[in-house]
Design a protein around this nucleic acid. Structure first.
Length: 532
DNA sequence: CTGGGGAAGGGGCCC
DNA sequence: TGGGCCCCTTCCCCA
């Protein structure tokens, strides 16, 4: 019995030992599996983090591209807007070439009518206020004020754009327009923020408000800066400014300035954008006109300033780049033909071309009315360095200091050969050299450096100007050998020669009338011999 | 409606 | 690289 008890005790001990060993084994297995699982989880988490980072990078890249693209587009539109203001001022100064029916009081812009320019990339809210004293208040040097209120932001990121000629600073181009304006014409300070790329992304919800309030004078309207001649932050205007020169450097030349921060140095920063996005509700382009249009007082505004800017042929909305100018009411198209300065039809065609271009690429600022407006600048008579300079500066605005060529080169796509490494930022068309690209971009920018001295026609190509001048000289160097017809253009002679060679092989079986093409015969038969 | 002429836009090529 | 020429295309006007 005692042995039996001892035996059971031993068995129990063995069982316990075995159980402990089994538990230990199980625990070891669990620990191992747990470690493996932990390792796998950790690796998965690392992979997730990596993928998340990649995703963020991709999103950042996309946002950067979008911001850069938007910047370019808005720079164009903003430049055009500024150009428009210059034109407005100039138009009031050169009223002899444009019909101004509107009384003086109606040409006054309200101070409280803002233009909101959402720069999209800014980090602060800024206001540009264009003010002008009344004729009486300003005296013979009646002027308008363009100033900007900046509410926040790093002073290091401010750039001032000064349009016009600062007091005491000689205008770059002395023109006859100045005769009507004894004072320096325009001076416009635009303080602009630039930020980092992150700021661009962040500031998509931020607003930068560019409030432009200008009271236009019927005569002698002069844009000037704030009386102190200081920028919004007290930065004195730099006469040697170079920013935002665009188009023709007439007295309405945009002088710009860079303050000490040299904001254009931010060229590497895509957020360094001078973009404008005019909110229809705050748009001041029309200012009172817009309201008056809705009231049906359009006839009072034969001023090309208003009609050209505000009116679409359909009387609805003009879309210039991303700037939407809403015109309320059934405003009829009132492009003042008299304002076209003797241009028989090409300017109107510019508008058509512009619309057609927009039809294919809404982001292309092609021959916009504003450009057409500028292009009718009767001041410049020949191409001057200012024009090329302005083109360069336009590119500076567009691509921020030397980034243009880089962008063009970087933007090369597979469908462009190495021979055409210079790509147009507007249409992506490739050119073999930079000069050709620069010339081509006039199609989009509307820059026409070549002006006829006999009329006010302007051309983007020197050859076009030379060809045009035959209109004035009456020279017709191309003569037909078959008749006595003479032509100023060889292409027209070539077309004419077809008259002598043209055959009309298509004959109507009913009446015998012959046509040069089958489609003419079909139309003819449908109209005259249709049995239906 | 059709065709002809005038004129301009714009790109390619050459020097 | 810049200017000039050539060419094609397109639009407008007119008969």
């Amino acid at each position: 019995m005692a042995n039996c008890v001892v035996f059971h005790t031993q068995i129990a001990s063995v069982m316990e030992v075995l159980a402990n060993a089994a538990v230990a084994e199980i625990c070891k297995l669990v620990d191992d599996d747990y470690a493996v699982l932990q390792l796998e989880i950790t690796q998965s988490q690392k992979e997730n983090r990596g993928l998340r980072r990649k995703l963020q990078l991709l999103e950042l890249k996309v946002a950067r591209d979008r911001a850069e693209r938007t910047m370019r587009e808005r720079v164009v539109s903003s430049v055009k807007i500024l150009d428009q203001y210059r034109e407005m001022a100039r138009g009031h100064l050169t009223g002899g070439q444009r019909s101004f029916v509107k009384p003086v009081r109606d040409n006054t812009w309200r101070h409280d009518q803002p233009i909101t320019v959402d720069e999209g990339s800014g980090t602060s809210t800024q206001h540009m206020v264009i003010e002008s004293a009344d004729t009486e208040a300003a005296g013979p040097g009646g002027s308008s004020l363009v100033k900007q209120e900046r509410t926040e932001g790093d002073p290091q990121q401010i750039r001032n754009i000064q349009t016009g000629v600062a007091a005491g600073v000689a205008p770059p181009v002395a023109t006859k327009d100045l005769t009507s304006s004894p004072q320096p014409r325009a001076k416009c300070n635009i303080t602009e923020n630039s930020g980092t790329m992150n700021e661009v992304l962040k500031s998509e919800t931020d607003t930068e408000t560019l409030i432009v309030t200008q009271r236009l004078l019927n005569t002698g309207s002069v844009l000037r800066s704030d009386p102190e001649g200081l920028g919004p932050l007290g930065c004195p205007p730099a006469p040697g400014s170079e920013y935002l020169l665009y188009g023709n450097l007439s007295p309405r030349t945009v002088h710009s300035q860079r303050d000490s921060c040299d904001a254009l140095e931010t060229g590497n920063d895509p957020s360094c954008s001078y973009t404008t996005e005019i909110e229809p509700g705050n748009i001041s382009l029309g200012l009172e006109t817009q309201n008056d249009l809705s009231r049906g007082n359009l006839n009072q505004y034969s001023s090309s300033v208003y009609t050209e800017v505000c009116l679409d042929k359909k009387g609805g909305v003009i879309v210039v780049d991303e700037v939407t100018v809403k015109v309320e009411g059934d405003a009829p198209p009132t492009w003042n033909v008299d304002c076209h300065l003797g241009d028989r039809h090409s300017q109107g065609r510019d508008l058509l071309d512009y619309r057609g271009s927009l039809g294919t690429n809404l982001n292309v600022a092609t021959h916009s009315p504003l450009h057409a407006f500028r292009d009718r600048d009767p001041v410049s008579t020949t191409m001057g360095p200012s024009d090329s300079h302005s083109s360069i500066l336009f590119d500076q605005v567009l691509n921020s200091k030397g980034q243009k060529a880089k962008a063009q080169a970087v933007g090369a796509t597979s469908d462009n050969s190495n021979e055409k490494q210079f790509l147009c930022v507007f249409c992506n068309k490739g050119f073999s050299c930079l000069q050709k690209l620069e010339i081509h971009k006039r199609v989009h920018t509307g820059i026409k450096p070549f002006s006829c001295t006999q009329c006010h026609m302007r051309f983007a190509h020197s050859s076009s100007l030379k060809r045009h001048q035959r209109v004035h000289t009456g020279e017709k160097p191309y003569s037909c050998t078959q008749c006595h017809m003479r032509f100023a253009q060889a292409s027209n002679l070539k077309i004419h020669l077809k008259v002598h060679m043209r055959e009309r092989p298509i004959a109507c079986m009913d009446c015998g009338k012959r046509f040069s093409d089958r489609c003419y015969l079909m139309i003819h038969q449908q109209k005259n011999h249709s049995t239906l």
